[in-house]
């Protein structure tokens, strides 16, 4: 029987967003910087709209919380909506990455020693 309190599994892009938010930290993670971070580390083009939708979804799942930061000139005087990963979010990231690592570990030879 599955544990009811186990965190919901994250989709691939959700995981990327969560990882970027964790890397950037609560004072720098927001839509634009998260999109840049994913692009920088994975090389794939990321639409900011997708990041926005994903953050909305993660917030609805209570994996992240958001707050308004200070206004910035390069944003036309508008604030950033900064993202903080909640403990439940961190647990979800851990569960997802563990599952991936468990699956990948058995395929070391096939994948060429990625682990």
């Amino acid at each position: 029987m599955a544990d009811k309190r186990a965190p919901a599994p994250l989709a691939e892009f959700e995981l990327l967003v969560m990882l970027a938010a964790l890397r950037l930290g609560p004072d720098e993670a927001y839509t634009v910087s998260i999109a840049d971070d994913i692009h920088h580390h994975t090389g794939r083009g990321v639409r900011r709209a997708n990041v926005y939708t994903t953050l909305q979804r993660l917030e609805a799942k209570e994996l992240v919380s958001t707050r308004l930061g200070d206004a910035r000139a390069e944003r036309g005087g508008k604030p950033r909506r900064l993202v903080t990963v909640r403990p439940s979010g961190l647990a979800a990231v851990r569960a997802s990455t563990s599952a991936i690592q468990a699956m990948v570990g058995a395929l070391g030879k096939v994948l060429g020693g990625t682990t």
């Binding site: 926005y52 944003r75 508008k78 604030p79």
Partner: peptide, 11 residues
């Protein structure tokens, strides 16, 4: 609205 506009402005 404000933060979405801010994102667009930055972009």
């Amino acid at each position: 609205l404000d933060d979405v506009l801010g994102d667009l402005e930055e972009a």
